[in-house]
Amino acid sequence: MAHVEHDVISGQNTTGHEWDGIKELNTPLPKWWVYVFWACVIWAIGYWIAMPTWPTTNGFTRGMLEYSSRGDLANELDIQKKARSQWLTKLEAASVEDIAKDKTLLNYALAGGKIAFGENCSACHGSGGVGVAGAYPRLADDEWIWGGTLEDIHQTIQYGVRNENGESRQSEMLAFGTGDTLDATQVDQLADYVLSLSSKTPAAGSPGEAIFAERCTACHAEGGVGTKELGAPALNNNIWLFKGDKESAKQGVVNQITKPRHGSMPAWAGRLDAATIKMLAVYVHSLGGGK
């Protein structure tokens, strides 16, 4: 069959094949390539011994180094926790009021709270707490539905509003304008009065005032100042949570009287750790808390 020849020019042998006088050189692979190939094979054997590689009947070989990506993560988190523990233990032990009083702790909490806010809260309340008109309250002002003290904010973040958590803030506004509650004229009069509350001159003596006194003051309080324990917002200002961009202020009030909408907020206890929630409370308070 094959007739191997030595090629003088290249110094290599031929493979012995010949087609119409054309012969093929049998040039060996470059030495460096062959060495790298064998180095890879040896490396692979070392890797099998050192690292988790082979499946077994009840798991896999752990390897001499016992490497584990999840184990590495646990170690890294431990190290991080120790590095932060100086702050975190203080945050966990201190009440939110105490955090606000301690200047260095406050600085740490504000920085941490800002980051946690960006990831967890800004989806609804917007960057920097600007809120969404017609949906989610603005936090960067001094108007608070469920109270703006540090403790109130802390409570709201922990347990949320109108959710499945047993501790969450609960309340429900009744619908007026159906059944035997209020007729359309009365709703109209009431809406006019509610709007006048937010001006400097409430419409005293108007028919709406009487309806308001009878139906609304239990929650929204006299003069429409609101009751924070019930999440009944103040009506004596120009902040309207559920007024959409496209509707007039009056239409917004009428809608809320006849088909009340209720905001809800998830509970964060359990999802975020206690220290992070405290940092958030302090941060949110810094945006406009107080009342």
């Binding site: 967890n120 989806a123 609804c124 969404v132 949906a135 989610y136 959710n163 905001g263 809800s264 907020m265 998830p266 999802r271």
Partner: peptide, 10 residues
Amino acid sequence: GKYTNDWHTR
């Protein structure tokens, strides 16, 4: 559980 149903819908 991170956001409300209302938020997801909007």
